[in-house]
């Protein structure tokens, strides 16, 4: 009973803390993620990248939500020649 009550309190507190600023913090996080994704894929997009040897390894991690990203950036279809997500 006490445990359930405590869990309810924790959930309520967490929501009360996050809800008013969720929009701002998620947007800030998304901006950072977008910048990171751009750096990782810069070579593929035609931007010279002196450390592409290293960022290439990170490619698999950013491809998962690649489709959502290019649509958000205003590109209706995939800008990558060799990667057609849509």
């Amino acid at each position: 009973m006490v445990r359930l009550w405590w869990q309810g309190l924790v959930r309520f507190y967490d929501e009360m803390y996050q809800a008013p600023y969720r929009r701002i913090s998620r947007r800030a996080q998304r901006r950072q993620d977008d910048l990171f994704r751009l750096m990782v894929m810069s070579e593929s997009l035609g931007i010279p990248n002196p450390v592409s040897f290293y960022t290439l390894e990170l490619m698999p991690f950013v491809l998962e939500d690649f489709h959502e990203w290019h649509q958000r950036m205003g590109m209706e279809h995939s800008p990558l020649e060799g990667f057609r997500c849509c």
Binding site: F12, E15, M16, A19, P20, R22, R23, R26, R27
Partner: peptide, 20 residues
């Protein structure tokens, strides 16, 4: 979308609406 549009419990929403 988890960013702008998030369905929220009405008591939580009342709490942060009132305190805002």
């Amino acid at each position: 979308d988890g960013v702008d549009f998030v369905p929220t419990n009405k008591y939580v929403l009342w709490g942060h609406h009132f305190t805002s």
